[in-house]
Nucleic acid binder design. Structure first.
Lengths: 224, 224
DNA sequence: TTTGACTTAGAACCTGTGTTCGTTTACAAT
DNA sequence: ATTGTAAACGAACACAGGTTCTAAGTCAAA
């Protein structure tokens, strides 16, 4: 994963246009307007490059709303963000975690996540884990609500096949044919999977049919 | 047309909302958003009043364009320059949010936060909000567990005194003498505070004794 | 009471606009 | 050549959101 993102001429051109457009109109342009102005004949390409710019930290987007663009770094007050700060890390979003569907865990080498699915995080969110082993999943459905994880949440996991008592892990259950997030408590032959929500009964499964995929490091939930 | 029209309360309300919204999001609101915020339940009425405001010279419109609104006399040139900005932003952690204790919200005036209480986040976690208005709180206790927020979680909030329907907000309740996180649903004289957890009964409070402190943008939970 | 200007509602309509997806090209590495 | 990946394309989709229309409620003046 190459880490220098030199902006392409196109991306620079988009920024230039946006700056001018906003200054001129008081609101950001649409994807199609950007395309027209920068000689891009496909909205998806504009969209693609906009996401690149978000990754590079040049702007932020409000998903699914028209003109939901915003240039980062508008004249702020104070020192707030002055300090260079450690750079963000980039973590691959390898898919969704849904009940009744296995999770595609990135194998040692062959990973093929598309660029769009890379999220930025800060080092402290990894809790010291090797960034190379960290991946992200988006939670679909409320099946993990008893683990205090809601639909749409993003979980950062560290790839590993074992777990310590009390770890919050993503486990594949042969029996149920699904992957879930639970608290992990090995008890000899069997494993107790304790929902995090108080007053909810634990699940017991055979240790041989319970495969740890990764340990949860952080849960991120974007609200609205 | 008599040009000396004093603005109606509604129209003034629209202007107020627009100003706040633009400041907050960097682009103007939609007709429907305006309606929602100013208790107008018909898009045509909003449209009607917007045209009035144009007549009165308070704003200009770009026909048949989404968010084609522009406050007149409002900063055209606000020094929006493209600042590369690396992926990290710094957000002050202003304290804890606990049942039965008020939250210290940072005031506009110059404030000084000590190093330890600053956390790093990435721009996309702010959902387009002005970084200068964002602050963080650490959740103490399980009192907000019905809002899917657990002990130890960090919540990123945007400082604001108003909220839209469905927003997850930090509200101060005179009655209970505490601040909590809930989903905000204004219903005329009263406010319905809906816990996020399904199958849990909402709380109803008098709108006058319910003060919004900030809107939750993101919830971050470090596991283990 | 009637009239007419002003304001509000609600729904229907339809274009604008973000999103997604299958495909294709360019280029570098193996 | 073969493979893998970044980048581009264009079409289709879905719904957000501006526009328009009909109807009705308010209120002051006649």
């Amino acid at each position: 994963m190459k880490s220098y993102d030199r902006l392409s001429e196109r991306q620079r051109s988009i920024l230039r246009y946006m700056e001018q457009y906003i200054d001129q109109n008081g609101f950001p342009p649409t994807i199609r307007e950007i395309g027209l102005a920068t000689d891009i004949n496909s909205t998806s390409v504009v969209n693609y490059n906009l996401n690149k710019l978000v990754q590079a930290g040049y702007l932020t987007r409000s998903g699914r709303v028209s003109r939901g663009l915003r240039l980062v770094g508008k004249g702020d007050n104070e020192m707030r963000k002055i300090a260079p700060v450690n750079n963000g890390l980039r973590v691959p979003m390898v898919g969704h975690i849904v009940a009744s569907e296995p999770v595609a865990i990135p194998e040692d080498a062959g990973h093929y996540y598309d660029q769009d699915s890379i999220i930025n995080v800060t080092p402290d969110m990894l809790g010291g884990a090797d960034p190379a082993l960290v991946f992200a999943l988006r939670v679909k459905g409320d099946s993990m609500i008893d683990a205090m994880v809601a639909d749409g949440d993003i979980v950062l996991l560290r790839k590993q096949e074992t777990a310590k008592q009390g770890d919050m892990v993503a486990v594949w259950l042969d029996e149920n044919g699904e992957t879930t997030l639970k608290l992990y408590y090995p008890e000899g032959e069997r494993v107790r999977l304790q929902p995090k929500h108080p007053h909810m009964a634990p699940i017991y499964v055979d240790a041989r049919h319970c495969h740890v995929r990764g340990k949860v490091l952080t849960v991120i939930r974007r609200v609205n």
